[in-house]
Design a protein around this nucleic acid. Structure first.
Lengths: 136, 136
DNA sequence: TAACAAACGCAACATTGTTGCGTTTGTTAA
DNA sequence: TTAACAAACGCAACAATGTTGCGTTTGTTA
């Protein structure tokens, strides 16, 4: 009788502690990427260091990922299945809507190809600012 | 008898003070995007707050821009001519080389088109991690 | 060159990152 | 089921950076 989150954690050799399960539940329930300040608010009973270390553990484990938006607040969202402790492999784009201010992970319609002469590309992170479909 | 930098500043209604000119000179001389720690080192005689406010003034004025690299250190680089106090409009990509660790602004060979259904896109920021031409 | 607004230095406080260490707890094997 | 260990947690403490207020200095303009 294991929850899905506990399984996720143990798969990465992380103990399924109540704190981690609670944090995951908060991140997953949020309908878009959750800003750090919201995490603090929802988890105000967490010690500051515990939140810090728990987030780091989940980031390292490829369970959640950061979406930094133009050097402002940091947002967190659940990873897709293809992330692991080996690394993050997101194929989506982080969109920050200027109307509702929400940050979401969206799939681009086209395949994004970036070709830079004489450069070997390992990973690409794309941040888009604009207006989301809800607000249009 | 105005330097190019002084002109840049006055165009944005910013006073051409020695501090600002010195900071611009440091940023411009650096062969790639300069990390914040390097700025501090080169400008250790600046008050911490002065560096902070000077950078903000130049960022707001569209004279320099930030290149944040996966939530690590922040890098700064000179803007191109088409940036102004109205906003930044970069068409380049920020590349962090995993070998030399340098961050540079490079032009992509192809036009980067990102199409997301029902989303109106204003601005796109792209961060690439890989190996630069020098290190290949 | 005088006068004003902007820029600067200093002090002070807030937020977040980061580490050490003693205690608590999840996990595993007996 | 439980004992034992390693991991996770809370607390204290310190570092780095962000941010604001205020009095003084300085660039700009008339």
């Amino acid at each position: 009788m294991d929850t899905e989150f506990a399984e996720l954690l143990r798969d990465r050799n992380l103990k399924a502690t109540p704190k981690r399960l609670e944090l995951l539940s908060v991140v997953a329930k949020y309908n878009s990427a959750i800003p750090y300040s919201e995490l603090q608010k929802s988890l105000h009973h967490f010690d500051r260091v515990t939140l810090y270390r728990t987030l780091n553990a989940l980031l390292d484990g490829g369970i959640v990922h950061k979406a930094s938006v133009s050097n402002e607040e940091v947002y967190y969202a659940m990873c897709k299945h293809y992330c692991s402790s080996e690394g993050h492999h997101h194929k989506h784009v982080h969109l920050k809507c200027k109307e509702c201010l929400e940050v979401s992970c969206v799939e681009a319609k086209n395949t994004i190809v970036i070709d830079i002469p004489n450069v070997e590309i390992d990973n690409v992170e794309i941040e888009v600012q604009g207006t989301c479909s809800k607000c249009l």
